[in-house]
């Protein structure tokens, strides 16, 4: 009985450790989705120059859960853009993202790197717009590198701690 309980507790601690590490991966995945979104915006603006609402609807990413979530938020903003007088895209996006709990995995810096470009979309000429999108992508690339590095380190640490504490608890209980 004692060894069964010890084994269960050990497994729970290890599972919690794995889940924590997974949260870090989700954050990195979201940042990558944002970069893909910016790449798409860059192409559509450069070659088609559609009005803003149409531009947002042309963002149609499907590869990961984060891609799909970001696409849904931008499409919802596009719908509201067409029914608002002189809307502020950043405010619309803030409203949409507040409704999605998965967006909450991102830190303030992660969000700022992406949402900064939303405040500037459609407010300047083509060359300036593409330059700003490039700068936003560079910010997100830097965030992605930091997250990948931190994520690997933290994941290793969490796994090690998790297994170590699980083993310790097992030894104590038996």
């Amino acid at each position: 009985m004692g060894s069964d309980a010890a084994f269960s507790v050990t497994m729970c601690i290890c599972a919690a450790a794995v889940l924590l590490a997974d949260g870090e991966r989700q954050r990195a995945s979201y940042v990558r989705a944002m970069r893909r979104c910016l790449m798409r915006m860059n192409d559509v603006i450069r070659y088609e120059r559609p009005p803003l609402a149409q531009l947002l609807r042309r963002i149609d990413l499907k590869g990961t859960r984060q891609d799909r979530e970001l696409t849904r938020m931008l499409h919802a903003c596009a719908d509201r853009l067409e029914h608002c007088a002189n809307p502020q895209l950043l405010n619309l996006f803030a409203g949409e993202s507040a409704r999605r709990s998965t967006y909450g995995v991102l830190s303030g810096e992660d969000r700022e790197a992406f949402e900064g470009i939303l405040a500037e979309l459609g407010r300047c000429g083509l060359a300036e717009q593409l330059r700003l999108i490039g700068e936003a992508d560079e910010r997100l690339r830097a965030r992605e590198e930091i997250l990948n590095h931190e994520s690997r380190q933290r994941a290793r640490l969490i796994r090690t701690l998790g297994f170590a504490s699980g083993a310790a608890v097992f030894l104590i209980l038996i």
Partner: peptide, 13 residues
């Protein structure tokens, strides 16, 4: 200007 362009100044250049 942003409003007159429908928030799409890059499309109105």
């Amino acid at each position: 200007m942003a409003a007159l362009c429908g928030c799409s100044m890059y499309a109105c250049e």
